[in-house]
């Protein structure tokens, strides 16, 4: 352990009936294969039919908190920019 590099991995899990992968947590592993195995033990308890993604943390680019305002702030006084006036039909919800 001391001589080897165990980088951090982020784990995304899709549960059996889930529609998308959700970030579940992180772990250390020497490579992707081991990261998958460890993720299985730590985050899925081996329930059948789940899908796992592991991504090296270093591969993730995050948006910066400093730029939050120009980046995310919606123009609240321009309601026509928000598609909230439409009724979404039941069957479309998961598209």
């Amino acid at each position: 352990m001391t001589n080897t590099d165990w980088p951090l991995w982020e784990v995304f899990v899709r549960s059996r009936r889930g529609l998308s992968h959700t970030h579940a947590g992180s772990l250390h592993a020497p490579d992707a294969e081991m990261a998958l195995r460890n993720a299985r033990d730590l985050y899925t308890r081996r329930s059948e039919g789940v899908s796992l993604w592991v991504v090296p943390s270093s591969a993730i680019t995050a948006s910066s908190p400093d730029e939050k305002d120009p980046f995310f702030e919606p123009a609240a006084d321009k309601p026509y920019r928000h598609p909230t006036f439409y009724e979404i039909p039941e069957g479309v919800r998961h598209l």
Binding site: L27, H28, M34, N38, D41, L42
Partner: peptide, 12 residues
Amino acid sequence: APVLEEEVALAN
């Protein structure tokens, strides 16, 4: 165990 993750695997 040598690392935390392996600890969990062995216990499993």
